[in-house]
Design a protein around this nucleic acid. Structure first.
Length: 262
DNA sequence: ATGGTGGATGCTCCA
């Protein structure tokens, strides 16, 4: 089973590249973040024409939005509101005996201080709520969390650990909290299983650099986590870095995992 | 310290 996750940054602006990725990698399941589209105008027909019969999505005008585009039927699907805000940052689908959660965690604004920046407070609250939600789950279960978590947790997940310590996405407050979320859910970091430390791994490069490839000031903001029953069945993890160099790219690149799903 | 770019929207917000 080929599972692909991508913060596409606008499903309409990116549709040509979404089509290209589908033709290149032929994923069975496609998880998108930042679709930026209302449900009533979601391009259902276009995905049906590409061979994806089963769709589940949750979007809003202009901002946020997550989607699951699948060749296989779901035995269950749904979502949760986080921090009591209905801002379309999470959906889940159940396929076979595995629940897959698609997350778009708040970016958190510019100032890493919850007392002056409500966006950062939202991010921290969201993560704390995730930690509590996961704590109640049995450690033996078949579960995946993937998506844009907007945190680069390890020193090797950013171009300069020292220079980003006070930059939102890599502050100790966020990286400690993400670590706690991972462990409270008994998850394993699939990307780091395949690309261990000290290799630098990035999934995002800002639009605001003239030559992203040469300056290479990236961050690993996108993640795929799985419980141990799933992680031992993963045969491949691929970061599709070339997609950052395509015409009209997203600032994030797609991540592909191959799993013999239970 | 600042500004650099892009998507969706509508004279601006968010990343």
């Amino acid at each position: 089973m080929k599972i692909l996750t991508w913060n596409c940054n606008g499903i309409r602006a990116r549709f040509p590249l979404i089509k290209k990725i589908i033709e290149l990698e032929k994923p069975d399941l496609l998880f998108l973040q930042e679709t930026k589209i209302e449900d009533k105008i979601f391009p259902e027909k276009e995905f049906h024409n590409l061979g994806y019969e089963f769709l589940f999505y949750r979007g809003e005008k202009s901002y946020n939005g997550v989607a699951c585009i699948s060749k296989m039927p779901f035995s269950d699907c749904g979502y949760r509101n986080w921090h009591n805000i209905n801002d379309c940052r999470h959906i889940f689908v159940k396929i076979k005996k595995t629940t897959i959660h698609n997350f778009y965690i708040p970016a958190g604004g510019d100032i890493p201080d919850t007392s002056v920046n409500s966006k950062f407070l939202h991010k921290i609250s969201f993560l704390r709520e995730m930690e509590n939600w996961l704590r109640d789950k049995p450690s033996k279960r078949n579960e995946i969390i993937l998506g844009d978590l907007n945190i680069a947790p390890l020193a090797e997940d950013v171009w300069s650990h020292k220079q980003l310590l006070n930059v939102v996405s890599h502050t100790p407050q966020e990286t400690d909290l993400l670590h706690d979320v991972l462990h409270s859910g008994s998850f394993e970091d699939l990307i780091r299983q395949f690309f261990p430390i000290p290799e630098k791994v990035f999934s995002w490069w800002s639009y605001r650099s003239k030559d992203w490839r040469h300056s290479d000031r990236g961050r690993r903001l996108d993640h795929v986590w799985a419980t141990s029953s799933i992680s031992k069945r993963v045969s491949k993890v691929k970061i599709l870095k070339d997609a950052r160099g395509w015409e009209k790219p997203s600032d994030h690149v797609p991540i592909l995992v191959e799993i013999d799903l239970v």
